[in-house]
């Protein structure tokens, strides 16, 4: 319940945060909403020596119209997403998925940037951004770069961000009127998904899987099958292709594969694919 000791640095700007990361190297961790990091620290499963608090960077907290995209500041809270009128119009799936994260208290604190940077395969927002074909913007000592969501998740709780980079923005395409579905399968409302499936139908169909391997995943076999003219049911049969789900208290590997197929079919049907 009590984290190990650490030093605390409050960043007044993105630049300060990046500088602090550079200074403290591997010892340091960014603190955004704290709703992934602090639970780990309380159980002493994470013991960073320095926390760099970016929670006050309000200039990175926004949901903006950016032409054919929506730009979301990394420090935007789940609650901001779930109540956003702009998202309701332009990207209702993201709003809906944010609403399914954790519980209201978690959504009042947790940020989309933290959720993506944490790169937890069991998290909801990464899959949504993947299915949407989003882009992430990272800022480091040498300036900004864009990373496609499909390139972002590199391993279990690992992302393409360098140690001294700050995720600043998440961009998702506007998809008004597109068919979509998010199937979250869990046992209690507050829990992470045992398996989840995000599907968006906007010309082509993007499908992403939650908790089907070490990273959030694109269901490429399904997408290919659909592109090749397969029915939703046929395509869904390939949902677990290339995945490496783990076994835990809630599901065996085999059951996860089964759920992925069933939920993908339901998602595709709901999305009208």
């Amino acid at each position: 319940m009590i984290p190990a000791k650490f030093d605390y640095v409050r960043a007044g700007s993105a630049a300060e945060a990046i500088a602090a990361l550079g200074e403290h190297g591997d010892e340091a961790k960014l603190l955004a909403g704290g709703h992934s990091l602090l639970p780990l620290m309380k159980l002493r499963l994470a013991t960073p020596a320095v926390l760099v608090d970016v929670g006050r960077l309000d200039d990175l907290r926004y949901i903006r119209d950016a032409g054919d995209q929506i730009a979301i500041g990394a420090l935007t809270r789940h609650h901001d997403l779930e109540t956003s009128d702009l998202l309701a119009e332009q990207c209702p799936m993201l709003r809906h998925v944010a609403h399914l994260v954790g519980d209201p208290q978690v959504r009042h604190r947790g940020t989309i940037g933290g959720s993506l940077a944490h790169a937890d395969p069991a998290s909801d927002l990464p899959a949504a951004v993947l299915a949407l074909g989003g882009t992430l913007v990272a800022r480091g000592p040498d300036g900004e770069r864009e990373i496609a969501a499909t390139e972002f998740f590199t391993g279990f709780l690992e992302s393409a961000l360098a140690g001294d980079e700050l995720l600043t923005e998440i961009r998702v395409p506007k998809v008004p009127g597109a068919g979509w579905s998010y199937q979250k399968f869990n046992r209690r409302a507050q829990d992470w998904a045992i398996v989840g499936v995000a599907a968006v139908r906007n010309g082509t169909t993007g499908v992403a899987l939650v908790n089907m391997g070490t990273t959030p995943l694109r269901a490429t076999a399904v997408e290919e099958a659909l592109a090749g003219g397969a029915s939703a049911a046929e395509a869904a049969e390939r949902a677990d292709e290339g995945t490496e789900p783990t076994a835990d208290l809630n599901a065996s590997e085999e059951y996860r594969r089964h759920l992925a197929r069933v939920l993908t079919r339901r998602a595709l049907e709901e999305a009208g694919a």
Partner: peptide, 12 residues
């Protein structure tokens, strides 16, 4: 807004 005060540092 409701928050879980066990998951917020006092300094935050």
């Amino acid at each position: 807004q409701s928050v879980k005060s066990c998951t917020v540092l006092a300094v935050q």
